[in-house]
Design a protein around this nucleic acid. Structure first.
Lengths: 188, 188
DNA sequence: ACCAGATGTATCGTTCGGATATATCTAATC
DNA sequence: GATTAGATATATCCGAACGATACATCTGGT
């Protein structure tokens, strides 16, 4: 429509939106729902980010919106413009920067020295439990995705699910090795 | 001083502050510096969180502040009160909840389908590079910590540094396996 | 005497996150 | 067939978080 240029930087929320819209056209509500069952485990997004960002992207000409009311309820579905697709590809080709972790379990292990010596190993056991719960959630997601009608298992989306599950397994094994080592020290 | 009670929940920033103050008394500036060379990799904190939180903790009676000016520059160092130590221990004993990741590399892998088929594997290679850089940073931290005068290597603090390095190694190996598998598929 | 860099405190603007308000549609229950 | 719970859809609010920066003073080197 208007003279859309590829911006040289996109907010992470913008890239998630462009990414999902590259698969099919969606409403903001659908994008949020997709995030919650897929990228949530390595990048979350809330309505408070998605709706304003959709408007910005529309103004920038990276997405187009079309009114598709269902019954008497208004509804806008968005799809990528050619410029939007180029912007997504440009972002995909740049080296990743952000790598942040918010891990309460690790924080407790880090400060375990403030506990009586015999109790410190409990922080590691707490971490094991946390990752068991996390893995169980991912298993549920996996089943839901696999039960989906139009599920392409060669897709790269599957890769990140596997990454999540493998990661949980790895952390659990790592902690259990350390728990065993700590308990041996305790006996010695 | 005043009737301090153990709050039944602490903000994560509060627990970091209490955790560091359990080791020794510190100024807000020192706490920030410690975070940047230690917990930053699994839980960051900024001045904008630390200074207001210190004031809240002081008002709640979990920490005490003492004016220790250096020359003409004002300076306040904080230390734990007995209630603060109890609050820290109570938090350490609770099961961890937060486990969040912000991983731009994974996000690119997830949306790799939007790239031409031959280019998709580059997203995995980008992730490898990202974790190599991350590991190099941690190695630097490790050397700085080990060169420290009062360094207790039996401490649980060392554990999380090792976790970070092992994690990077694991991710790199995981990606390289997937890169090999993808390149074999490409040839087939 | 000067200056770069470390120390120390604080705040500003932006983004983020969780919760919530509002409204309509769908499907099941009674 | 009426009622109601829950899904769909859009949007906003507020507090918390984040990065950057302003400001002042001290320290060490040139």
């Amino acid at each position: 429509m208007n003279a859309a240029r590829i911006p040289d930087s996109l907010s992470p929320t913008a890239t998630i939106i462009l990414g999902f819209l590259s698969q099919r056209e969606m409403s903001g509500y659908e994008i949020k729902a997709e995030v919650d069952i897929s990228t949530r485990f390595f990048w979350a997004a809330s309505y408070g980010q998605i709706y304003p960002e959709l408007k910005k992207l529309r103004a920038a000409g990276l997405v187009e919106g079309a009114d598709r009311p269902q019954g008497g309820r208004k509804r806008t579905v968005y799809r990528l413009t050619p410029t939007g697709r180029d912007a997504l590809r440009a972002w995909l080709r740049r080296a990743p920067e952000t790598l942040e972790l918010r891990h309460e379990g690790m924080l407790k292990v880090y400060f375990a020295d403030a506990l009586p010596a015999g109790e410190r190993v409990e922080t590691l056991k707490g971490m094991v439990e946390q990752h068991r719960r996390h893995a169980a959630q991912l298993e549920q997601t996996k089943e839901a995705v696999e039960g989906d009608e139009a599920h392409d298992e060669s897709s790269w989306c599957d890769l990140v699910l596997r990454f999540g599950l493998d990661f949980d397994d790895w952390v659990i094994e790592w902690c259990e090795r350390e728990i065993a080592a700590a308990e041996e020290d305790g006996r010695a």
